[in-house]
């Protein structure tokens, strides 16, 4: 019987070693250790043994059983690892194939510029004011010191709807409306972005519809130097910390004094095609609010003063991104728009 057991053990261990996969291994386990397997059979035959032999054989059976079980368990681990590896090998993919695209659009470049400027001034304590695009002649012109027949009205060719209604030619009427709301009490500190319209034929540099963003500060003792400091901060944040501004006297009916504001060119003054060799790029119009404008908006011009500035988002975007044709902004070509989904 001992002989028989030894032989069974040897046979079983051999078969365990030979098992090629988990199923074969399981077959071996069932065959040798199962209820009908030979080891169990040996155990069943133990009743016939003598009382001295029985414990000895019992121990031997257990040893054989444990040896076989252990061998099976070890083999099982090996086979499982192999099976996983095989599975993983089968599941291998080409990681260089394109991923599933996530849809994402983006801001129109004009919105991008507008929000950038809005945020910059919000940080300096400004709020955003908006107003109608179809305006009354009064708010668009008269309240801005441009009475009917004023020669400077030629500078702004206007789309009229009736003699008293027009498409606003600038966002300045929003300044007037805001000042009137303040009813003569400062401070006023606003940014007015929006669409404006001029009677122009559309070409590479003209558009009958474009955007403006204007700023207005009214308070006691607002100085020209405050305008200069504010625009200097703007230019540095918008175009780069190394940029400078330069004020040139100019004329607008609603400001006095009036200035054009140039920002130093990225060429660093060496002269390039963008600044036409001058080292400076004209970016803004600005000035101290004309006392007539303050008075018409209900502010005492001896007590209050203010500054205002304005610029065009299209021009800023064209300068900043190197866009060569203003019509691109209104064609909505995806090949154009998609370039501005990128966060800088």
């Amino acid at each position: 019987m001992e002989e028989q057991l030894k032989q069974l053990q040897a046979e079983a261990l051999e078969k365990v070693a030979a098992a090629a996969n988990l199923k074969e291994l399981n077959d071996v386990r069932v065959a040798y250790l199962g209820k009908k397997g030979p080891v169990t059979e040996v155990l069943k035959g133990m009743g016939k043994l003598s009382a001295e032999e029985r414990p000895k054989m019992g121990a031997l059976v257990n040893v054989v059983r444990e040896d076989i079980t252990k061998a099976i368990e070890e083999k099982q681990v090996t086979l499982e690892v192999a099976a996983i590896e095989e599975q993983l090998a089968k599941e291998s993919i080409d990681v260089t194939l394109p991923g599933r695209p996530v849809k994402a659009g983006g801001h129109h470049p004009l919105t991008r510029i507008t929000e950038e400027i809005e945020d910059l001034f919000i940080g300096m304590g400004y709020t955003i004011a908006e107003g109608p695009e179809v305006e009354q002649d009064y708010y668009n012109f008269e309240a801005l010191n441009l009475p009917k027949g004023h020669p400077a009205r030629d500078m702004q060719d206007t789309f009229y709807i009736t003699s008293e209604l027009l498409m606003r030619t600038h966002t300045s009427p929003v300044q007037v409306r805001t000042m009137l709301k303040h009813a003569g009490k400062g401070p006023v500190k606003i940014i007015c972005p929006g669409k404006v319209y001029r009677r122009d034929s559309d070409d590479a540099t003209h558009s009958h519809q474009f955007n403006q963003i204007e700023g207005l500060v009214v308070g006691e003792n607002i100085r020209m130097s405050d305008l200069k400091g504010t625009l200097d901060a703007f230019a540095k944040k918008m175009f780069g910390a190394d940029r400078e501004i330069r004020l040139r006297p100019s004329f607008f009916p609603f400001t006095e004094p009036s200035v054009e504001v140039d920002v130093s060119c990225m060429c660093g003054g060496k002269g390039c095609s963008i600044c036409k060799g001058t080292g400076w790029i004209e970016v803004l119009g600005a000035g101290m609010v004309h006392p007539n404008v303050l008075e018409m908006a209900g502010f005492d011009s001896t007590k209050y003063s203010g500054f205002a500035f304005g610029m065009g988002q299209e021009r800023i975007a064209m300068l900043k991104y190197g866009i060569d044709d203003i019509r691109h902004f209104y064609t909505n070509d995806l090949r154009f728009l998609q370039q501005f989904s990128v966060h800088e």
């Binding site: 919000i122 304590g125 955003i128 500190k189 130097s225 400091g229 004020l247 200035v259």
Partner: peptide, 24 residues
């Protein structure tokens, strides 16, 4: 201002009571 030269005007920021900025 124009004959004195705008370049000679200093850079300052508005003084006086301030208000929080922001979007509506």
């Amino acid at each position: 201002a124009r004959l004195y030269g705008y370049d000679h005007i200093p850079l300052t920021l508005p003084e006086g009571e301030s208000q929080p900025g922001g979007l509506s």
